[in-house]
Nucleic acid binder design. Structure first.
Length: 883
RNA sequence: GCGGGCGUAGCUCAGGGGUAGAGCGCGGCGCUUACACCGCCGGUGUCGGAGGUUCGAAUCCUUCCGCCCGCACCA
């Protein structure tokens, strides 16, 4: 017997263990289905599960379970990411917090990296344990880590071959430099933040003039130490006479040319721009055009370096800023200072202002790789769902910049480049090969030094869809599952990750990494705010699972996921799905109490009872809808559809209507109803399983004893539209309307539920009479009636009257009736019907409508109008009787 | 500046040329062969504004207003 209440925690642990033990998560070619593969976006290995993961994983697990049940050979490839900067920062922070005065640098590289591995060993299991609590069903036996042996080999192979193809190169150019982390970061890791600052107008003396100045405006006065020119617009009359002249850089004394360049915007600032090629991306270009030197005046920590006058050396950039402004003011060279709100690039990890910084870094020629990646989406080899994300993808891909892939970190894949004594570089997959290459180059052995830098984390994750399947080896899995079927992820990493996988996948595999990219929204709090630790509005999915169960969380997330929208997540929705799970549980208990069992001989296509024929059709419709919804990535439709089927259709109507049959005299009807109820519930458990795996598996086991094995590997129901019986549908539709109308009328007239009424009919057709007869017990029960009088009788006095189709039903309520209330009710009803009726008439009187609207629309309206007219007549009669 | 999204019931949102929907909340009533994490009944909308296309617009187009998100922008 099922327990009176459902206890998710206990059931979930047991069921999950059973799944894992059964090997159900591994791909199985047994049923011969086509491969279906999803690679899990690898979470940070030392992270923990947040709501974003919960949504992302629930969607993937639902897809995987759905296709597994449909007989596809499914692989959900799990794994974790080493998350270079993030993880290194965590460990550094721990070192700092531990009070040890051994920082990363003091410790040395080897010891520090060992420390990170230690941390990974200690906390690396957290997120995969949490995934189990959510019910994720990936093939754990294939779990990978971006820094494990195999994936590291893939990284080496990828780097070396791109290098040898000229698509990776080393270059000295400006990068976004994080002075706190002391590493370069890519354009994508830059956050533009609006800040209140100042615009300093500085006067530079014109060489050889009589006290003439040229005024430039800047938000970063400290960079003036590196100025090597001033640009004015060629057409700007104010400065025309200065073209080709020189200014003397204050505080430094450098002679810097005034050049004409279109970059200068006469509208902005003073129209004259100081040019600091080593510290500004635009200036770098201007400098290059005019042959201006790039003088770097900062060091890695953001302090003024030895290229600057001695007075400023060693000062932090912001201290230097103040000092320089003060010194210039003292010289009378500050024309004015304006308050100025502007955007300043910040590091997305460190949160500190970034400096454009001139260094040697490794770059990947993204422009070349992007060509095919753009084409693949243009021609539909890969499609985004929802579609509009393709614009975002194109926009970025078409303007893509060289990708800076080196990082001055220690945690990550060290770049496989070795330098000879003269700086000659040898890029090989191993030191041995590098030595060989060096020997070939120099003619003898030389000491080699390995590049210190590591690769951007996204370089290794960019290989994920094929590296996890075994590449560079030609494994059977790679052959079978690449290209993968769908990638499920958030829009925030389209550039970081999706784009890179597209480029690298196409380059190395010659084929897109995935056919579909399903982009879901962000999980926000119930008020729509982004969840963040600082705001304190973070919802912990594990807490939700503890409180409501994993199925409730999953259903709530799926039900709130409409394409192209963020998910606002509050406890209310989870609660309603927790209630839903309970409802399903209770309905199952009811079946159990009524000895409803699966009957192998049961044929859903040949039920005798209209009620059973009807529910078979209803579950078939629900099944078709769910199948279509999941196939179309419309998870809210899938979840909501089953919610309504289970709650409204199956529990509120079917079970209620079935009660008389289950307790009745007719043994055949009873047996059929038991079998039908069980069969329909079994179908429902199948349909619900991908979304709510735990409770469905438990009920499948406890109620039916897992015929044919566990639900996780059961066949998806084959429910065809041929199971829908139009006649039964019409009959039950009538029944529901009839009971509903009587209930509504009773409530509106304040007839106490305990009052058992007699029902008289007037004008009922033979069919209606037959239906009344067939469903007598159910109607008596659900409409709270004493008897039904089948003979056509005039409406007794003191009755409330309900009109259903051609028939009027009268319910004498004796002295209970409140005439004015009944009048009011009828009038309201009449008003509604008349409004619709009149609207229809108007339409039909419009010759254009009749002439131009499709015939079936006109015909439908005519039929509807006829019904309305009949109903209206009967209602008017009823009203007249009262008056 | 460029691109995208959103504006529908008190709240959160589905829908998307042919009778305005759901959940929650709210109000009333509780007799029931599982379920109070329940049952039954109920109300509410100028579908952001204005034009247009159409026999017909919440739905398509134009435009305006309001909100949000990317990207770009350190004079």
């Amino acid at each position: 017997m099922l327990d009176k209440t459902y206890r998710p925690a206990e059931v979930e642990a047991r069921i999950y263990a059973a799944w894992e033990a059964s090997g159900a998560f591994a791909p199985s070619a047994e049923r011969g289905g086509a491969p279906y593969c999803i690679v899990l976006p690898p979470p940070n290995v030392t992270g923990s599960l947040h709501m974003g993961h919960a949504l992302d994983h629930t969607i993937q697990d639902t897809l995987i379970r759905f296709h597994r049940m449909r007989g596809r050979e499914t692989l959900w490839q799990p794994g974790t990411d080493h998350a270079g900067i993030a993880t290194q920062m965590v460990v550094e922070r721990q070192l700092a917090a531990s009070g040890s005065n051994l920082g990363r640098r003091e410790m040395g590289r080897a010891a520090f990296v060992a420390k990170v591995w230690e941390w990974k060993a200690q906390s690396g299991g957290t997120i995969v344990r949490q995934m189990r609590r959510l019910g994720d069903s990936p093939d754990w036996s294939r779990e990978r880590f971006t820094m494990d042996e195999g994936l590291s080999r893939a990284v080496l192979r990828a780097f070396v071959s791109l290098y040898k193809a000229g698509l990776i190169y080393k270059d000295k150019r400006l990068v976004n430099w994080d002075t706190q982390l002391q590493t370069a970061v890519s354009d994508l890791e830059v956050q533009q933040i609006e800040v209140d600052g100042h615009l300093w107008h500085l006067k530079y003396p014109i060489e050889g003039s009589d006290g003439e100045f040229i005024t430039v405006a800047t938000t970063r006065p400290e960079t003036m130490l590196g100025d090597t020119g001033i640009a004015v617009h060629p057409d700007d009359e104010r400065y025309r006479h200065l073209h080709g002249r020189f200014a003397i850089l204050p505080l430094v004394g450098r002679r810097i040319p005034i050049v004409a360049d279109e970059y200068s915007d006469p509208e902005k600032g003073t129209g004259a721009v100081k040019i600091t090629p080593a510290h500004d991306f635009n200036d770098f270009e201007v400098g290059r055009r005019h042959g201006l030197a790039a003088i770097s005046v900062l060091d890695e920590l953001g302090r003024i370096n030895a290229n600057a006058p001695e007075a400023y050396r060693g000062l932090d950039r912001f201290v230097a800023r103040k000092r320089i402004v003060a010194d210039l003011e003292a010289l009378g060279l500050v024309e004015r200072i304006e308050k100025y709100r502007h955007v300043v690039p910040h590091g997305d990890r460190s949160g500190t202002p970034l400096e454009p910084f001139l260094t040697d870094q490794w770059y990947c020629d993204a422009k070349t790789l992007a060509k095919e990646a753009i084409a693949a989406v243009e021609d539909g080899r890969t499609r985004f769902i929802p579609r509009q994300w393709e614009n975002t993808y194109f926009e970025w891909m078409r303007n893509i910049q060289p990708w800076c892939i080196s990082r001055q970190l220690w945690w990550g894949h060290q770049i496989p480049a070795w330098y000879g004594p003269d700086g000659q570089v040898f890029v090989e997959e191993s030191e041995t090969e590098a030595r060989a290459a060096a020997r070939a180059h120099y003619g003898h052995d030389v000491p080699l030094e390995r590049d210190e830098d590591v690769l951007d984390t996204w370089f290794s994750s960019g290989l994920w869809p094929f590296s996890t399947l075994g590449w560079p080896d030609e494994t059977p899995e790679l052959k079978r599952f690449y290209p993968t079927t769908v990638l499920v992820t958030g829009f925030d990493i389209i550039f970081f990750w999706v784009a890179r996988m597209m480029m690298l996948g196409l380059y190395f595999m010659g084929e897109v990494p995935f056919r579909d990219v399903y982009i879901h929204g962000l999980v926000r709090d119930e008020r729509g705010a982004k969840m963040s630790k600082t705001k304190g509005n973070v919802v912990d999915p594990l807490q939700i699972i503890d409180d409501y169960g994993a199925d409730a969380l999953r259903l709530a997330l799926l039900a709130s996921t409409s394409q192209g929208r963020d998910v606002k997540f509050g406890p209310a929705r989870v609660e309603s799905y927790r209630n839903f799970v309970t409802k399903l549980w209770n309905a199952s208990r009811f079946l159990q109490m009524n000895e409803a069992r699966l009957d192998p001989a049961f044929d859903p296509a040949h039920c005798r009872e209209p009620l059973n024929r009807w529910i078979v059709g209803e579950v078939a419709k629900a099944g078709l809808a769910v199948t279509g919804a999941i196939e179309g990535y419309r998870f809210n439709d899938a979840a909501l559809g089953l919610y309504h089927f289970v709650w409204d259709t199956y529990c509120d109507w079917y079970i209620e209507l079935a009660k008389p049959l289950l307790g009745g005299e007719d043994a055949e009807a009873r047996a059929e109803t038991r079998a039908t109820a069980a069969w329909v519930l079994a179908q429902t458990l199948h349909l619900l399983h991908p979304m709510a795996p735990f409770v469905t598996e438990e009920l499948w086991d406890k109620l039916f004893g897992q015929p044919g094995g566990m639900l996780i590997v059961a066949d998806w129901p084959h429910l065809g539209a041929e199971l829908v019986d139009a006649e039964a549908e019409a009959e039950l539709g009538w029944l529901v309307r009839t009971i509903g109308s009587i209930r509504a009328a009773r409530t509106e007239l304040n007839v106490p539920p305990s009052a058992r009424l007699t029902l008289y009919q007037h004008g009922a057709s033979a069919e209606t009479l037959a239906r009344l007869e067939r469903h007598r017990e159910a109607i008596l029960r659900l409409a709270r009636l004493e008897t039904i009088v089948m003979e056509d009788r005039p409406v007794p006095p003191q009755s409330l009257v309900v009109v259903v189709d051609e028939a009027s039903f009268a319910l004498p309520v004796g002295h209970v009736i409140d005439v004015t209330a009944e009048k009011r009710r009828l009038e309201k009803e009449i008003g509604k019907v008349r409004a619709e009726h009149d609207k229809g008439i108007q339409k039909l009187e419009n010759p254009d409508f009749v002439a131009r609207a499709p015939v079936e629309v006109v015909e439908q309206l005519r039929e509807r109008l006829e019904e309305l007219r009949a109903t209206l007549d009967r209602l008017l009669q009823a009203l007249k009787r009262i008056d």
